[in-house]
């Protein structure tokens, strides 16, 4: 089985002012899970895919250094929205025919948390979002998956092929090692365009403005528990 794992290059901590870019942390977890499945003999190949400008090849190298077998970069510098990304990824899935697609549950810069579910919808495949455990059944026709929901942990079984989105506790991603980096230099990064894939993925959302959120008024230090209780009761009137 081939696993397709998606990753987005994001500013560190999703912060607009950060000047270091990294693999979206949830995508690093997805890559790790794919590698572990391959290492357990459940998958034969891990292909990593990203959509972005040439500069994101640094994160392509990082994914390869972690252990992905090859990388595909869809060359696109437009500000895309999740639905555009999902349509492009759909074309990549059609081309690659993976048995599983592993993704992050959200990109920490835009915090949309949509792309995996959209891709699953476009493909007509089952989805297992917010996954904290993925266990393939013998024969690899289904996978049992634990999901982190607001109401607690839920277990579902999905038929493969399916789309999975990783939550924080799925695993702890490995660090990129020096030998890994050296090896990564020899691994292929295939560059494709939307035109080559035959997809028209014009974004349907437009960012019109960004503003700072209302700032919280600076706080006061209280000297004792008694003073805190008094303030909460008399001043803030919350207890």
């Amino acid at each position: 089985m081939k696993i397709l794992v998606t990753f987005k290059s994001v500013p560190e901590n999703g912060a607009a002012e950060a000047n270091t870019r990294v693999i979206n942390p949830f995508d690093a977890i997805a890559v790790e899970e794919a590698l572990r499945l391959r290492e357990r003999g459940e998958a034969a190949e891990v292909a990593a895919v990203t959509i972005g400008e040439p500069a994101v090849e640094e994160q392509c190298r990082a994914a390869l250094a972690m252990g992905a077998d090859r990388c595909i970069r869809i060359d696109d510098a437009r500000p895309l929205d999740p639905y555009a990304v999902a349509r492009i990824l759909k074309a990549v899935v059609d081309r690659e025919s993976p048995g599983m697609v592993l993704m992050g549950k959200q990109a920490v810069d835009d915090d949309c948390g949509q792309t995996g579910q959209m891709l699953a919808g476009l493909l007509g495949w089952p989805q297992a979002t917010f996954a904290s455990r993925i266990a393939l059944a013998a024969g690899r026709e289904t996978a049992e998956c634990t999901r982190e929901t607001d109401a607690g942990l839920e277990v579902i079984e999905v038929r493969l092929p399916a789309v999975f989105t990783a939550d924080l506790r799925l695993n702890e991603p490995r660090y990129v090692s020096l030998p890994g980096l050296v090896k990564a230099r020899k691994k292929p990064i295939e560059v494709l365009t939307c035109a080559q894939l035959g997809v028209d993925a014009r974004p349907r959302t437009a960012l019109l403005a960004v503003a700072a959120p209302p700032q919280r008024a600076g706080g006061a230090v209280v000297a004792s528990v008694d003073e805190l209780v008094l303030k909460l009761r008399e001043e803030a009137k919350v207890i």
């Binding site: 949309c112 948390g113 579910q117 919808g121 349907r204």
Partner: peptide
């Protein structure tokens, strides 16, 4: 919520619609 975030993006794609979270 995790409920709506699981379901609505998928429904959006089935309706050929973009979405905001």
């Amino acid at each position: 919520s995790t409920f709506s975030k699981d379901i609505l993006p998928r429904a959006a794609a089935l309706l050929d619609a973009a979405m905001l979270t």
